[in-house]
Amino acid sequence: MTVVTLISGGMLAAAALLSLVRLLRGPGVLDRMVAVDVILSCLIAGIAVEAAYSRHGTTVPVLVVLALLGFVGSVAVARFSGGDTDAPLPPHGPEPDPSRRRDAP
């Protein structure tokens, strides 16, 4: 099991370092968000590998929290990254029909 832990841990560390390269290079905030997402998933995987190595379940609740954290983070950044990201697509058809708008009551 030690060998397995070393191999997986090494691969995960390399993955986190590579994502760090993307995080530094950018160029946009969304590229950085994707990089942070991958780093976070490497972190989750790393904690899981450690728990598997020492055969204890103490850190399992941490995994649950981290699994949701990444999602909340990327949705928040995507929504507030500027631009008109909340509007529906412009209506498409022979004439505009207000009832087809997404935000119609």
């Binding site: 397995v4 997986s8 691969m11 993955a15 370092l17 590579l18 991958v38």
Partner: peptide, 17 residues
């Protein structure tokens, strides 16, 4: 499972670079 999973994570990181 652990090794395959870590390898896929590494592939994802290579991909985003």
């Amino acid at each position: 499972c652990l090794i395959t999973g870590s390898a896929l994570s590494l592939a994802a990181a290579i991909g985003i670079v």
